[in-house]
Design a protein around this nucleic acid. Sequence first.
DNA 1: AGGTTTTATTGAATCGTTAAAAATCTAACA
DNA 2: TGTTAGATTTTTAACGATTCAATAAAACCT
Lengths: 349, 349
Amino acid sequence: MSSIKDVAREAGVSTATVSHVVNNTRFVSDEVRSRVERAIEACRYYPNAHARSLASGNSRILGLVISDIANPFFPELVKAVETAAFERGYDVVLSNTNYDADRASHYVRRFIERKVAGVALLTSELDKKLIEELARREVPVVFLDVGEAGLHMSNLRVDYETGIEEAILHLVSLGHREISFIGGPPHLRSARRRLEAFRSAKQRLFPDAADGVYFGDFKIEGGRRAASEILAGGKLPTAVMAANDLMALGAISEFRAAGVQVPRDVSVVGFDDIAFAALSEPALTTVNLPLGELGKHAVEALMETLSNPDQQGIEITIPTHFIVRASTAPARLSPDGTKHARKAVRVKS
Amino acid sequence: MSSIKDVAREAGVSTATVSHVVNNTRFVSDEVRSRVERAIEACRYYPNAHARSLASGNSRILGLVISDIANPFFPELVKAVETAAFERGYDVVLSNTNYDADRASHYVRRFIERKVAGVALLTSELDKKLIEELARREVPVVFLDVGEAGLHMSNLRVDYETGIEEAILHLVSLGHREISFIGGPPHLRSARRRLEAFRSAKQRLFPDAADGVYFGDFKIEGGRRAASEILAGGKLPTAVMAANDLMALGAISEFRAAGVQVPRDVSVVGFDDIAFAALSEPALTTVNLPLGELGKHAVEALMETLSNPDQQGIEITIPTHFIVRASTAPARLSPDGTKHARKAVRVKS
DNA sequence: AGGTTTTATTGAATCGTTAAAAATCTAACA
DNA sequence: TGTTAGATTTTTAACGATTCAATAAAACCT
């Protein structure tokens, strides 16, 4: 199609002038400007983004790396990032790693080749080499829950502690003493952070309680499996907290299938507050993680680094807060949770 | 950072040779090749994608336009597209229109500037001008449910008819005669297609039945509102089909809130078979639209056009099939659905 | 041996833009 | 009127690849 040269010829000016009209980068007299604008129309001129990026050295592309778009945790995050980027004239290249670090690396390499303006690494599976590579190339980066922010590298720090502590205090106030936890895959950083927050809150309240930690995969199926392990364990806890809503929902469905009613027999608490948490039956009591905020801040952090290069990245804390819905209720009376005892409770209620 | 020239110098060859090594585009002797590879390592050379695109004229970027990533219909679609694209070495630029045609246009313009290899327009809100522009620029495009495929333009045609007809036959076999429909926003093509499929199936079976069509927004809230209109209407139908699962779920929640039990008092059928359909309570009877297939075919169609340019696009039909779960049951006995009659039924059951 | 083919590599133009430096034009001032 | 400063616009050289035509070297024929 037609290039800037065609427009320049059509308007009888140099390509530089056309460029300045298009980008508003220098004053151009009204007369020339309108001539150029007419020529642009006539030629149906669309600037070539690649030529532009090559010449200018930057790309107005943001790379977004997430683990699994099919996990309802992410779409809202993606949406927020996309919206914030669009407002600033950036395009978002999406990369879905399926929790696979190799795939993340592969994608980041592509991002570097594309000279992306910044990368939002909103996943847990990243290897050190990747981060080093990004650091070496001086690509602005924003992480989720990585320990340290660095040069060009910002960090979004989710305050898991507050929300999880609120959740546990709520359970305690309902009389719960035996609280199990369904964690995510331990190799994921976010899973570890959530688990730690749970353990430290629980330890503070019940220094001698059993650990009661099971592991899932952050998906529904993993919640089901963990719930059936819990059921098989014999002693049913009075409450179960899951590291994310998906697993909480899976656990509820497994409990129900086994004839254990939520919240009558067991209370269940989730984490994330995905859209369906409010809609499930019973509506899920959970900890809200403001994903929209998170996505917005991710883009803002990148923009910050872009406008102040050679500067330390920023650290943003994302708050969480507890939301009571219908999946939690006072603890059943029986002190232990054997199947027999549970049945007895059911009769009483 | 280092460019192809640096590598060429380091290896003692021309840039052309380096390019051929990198892209495997001509035979290069083993000795030279390994020298070049060593130089690439030494320089930490990453090819510049913009320079490459500029010189070669194509970009290995696919533009993906969807309406709303927060609608669970889309993530799975996005995932399938992203996976298929990744396998072929393409990156996906995501564009979320929020059902806004202007924003879609804006994005498509950017795509043209980026010389994307192809665009998957998996939305309903497109204006004619946009499509013309894409046609003029000879960008390969794949649509969802647009009438005609054209030059460079393929089309994914969802076979709404089969799934919806199966659903209605199922309801009829359960004794339902009064079946209402909650449609999507009528300005969206996909909403119209679904509604038409419903109407034609219903007309065939009950030529004289009342239309019984309500409209929602394809979101949960719209389903709630439609359900409350249905309740307010006085005559409660024995079954309600919604144009998507989200509205079906919204309707169920509204019915429940009003003391109307699903499926005992009303059967509800959804459409799409999103992940949560199976998990809701009651599990949603719905029509499965294979989103993974759809996404895969979208990319395949684009690849097809890319390898056979100046050729008519292809037309792919995506099947749908009905899935019975727990939100449908035999029609209640009462021939009409006044509140009084409904209560009577409740006593009987 | 001389000519023709084949094989491997290089040189240089090109893609469409930006941006720094150079050129031109205008108006103002002494 | 000549000089100068300021305002606009043009020239020209990158940016970093790809790619085609050209070349050099080796291989094959007769």
